[in-house]
Amino acid sequence: MNPSTTSAREGAPSAPEQAAALLAVAGLDTGYGDTQVLWDVGLEVRRGEVVALVGANGAGKSTLLAAISGLVPAWAGAIRFAERDITHTGAERIVKQGLIHVPQGRRLFPGLAVEENLKLGAYTRRAGSPTALATDLERVYTLLPKLAERRAQAAGSLSGGEQQMCAIGRGLMARPALLMIDELSLGLAPNIVDTILAAIDEIHRHEGLAVLLVEQDVQIALERADRGYVIENGRIVSTGTGAELLRSTTVRAAYLGE
């Protein structure tokens, strides 16, 4: 468990797979137009790790995800994914490399059926074999059986929880190495959040999927994360294991109302 990415890379063949940073963000500045939103942001997700990014509304969480997935250009700093520099790579190529972003507010294709939404998740996988697509569809339906019931229904007519399931299922269809989920729990009943998190946990444990969980609900995120980052006003202000952060008095005071 070597936390330093540089030494892990130098000793590449012998370094344990687990320690290698799958995603490494360093010194990232970005924003919209003239307005800077992120300052010197550094963040790391290792292979097979669940990392939480928590912070208040407007702290810059969604902007960070947009910058990582190539939807917002970086002003300064570097983003590496799977040993490749993706700082200035287009969104399309980033998706192809297995870095999948489930955007806030679910962003489904409302007029299309659930199954069509899911299939579009596999868009960048260049058609491939129809059997692989069918296998992946069945996998998503097994994980989230509610989607199987709704497969022919227009995504816009689903309940909030089902829409979130559809968005995450669509993300899984791209066979991600890292799934970044923006505000998974927003507006959802606790039992639905549990169902979705259980499905994600299943893939995380069985297939080593790494997850970057972006949450306003600090408790939900830090309870499940291996590590976490706290972002405030566009800067990372503290980091540690999920348990450490949950115990930290500053986090408890700022986000858990204690």
Binding site: L71, R107, F109, L120, A127
Partner: peptide
Amino acid sequence: SRFGVALVAIRENEEAAEALGIP
């Protein structure tokens, strides 16, 4: 075609289409 499916995705939700890697 894949092209047509992508156009429908753009019509339905352009941001989501972009996030899925559709140019």
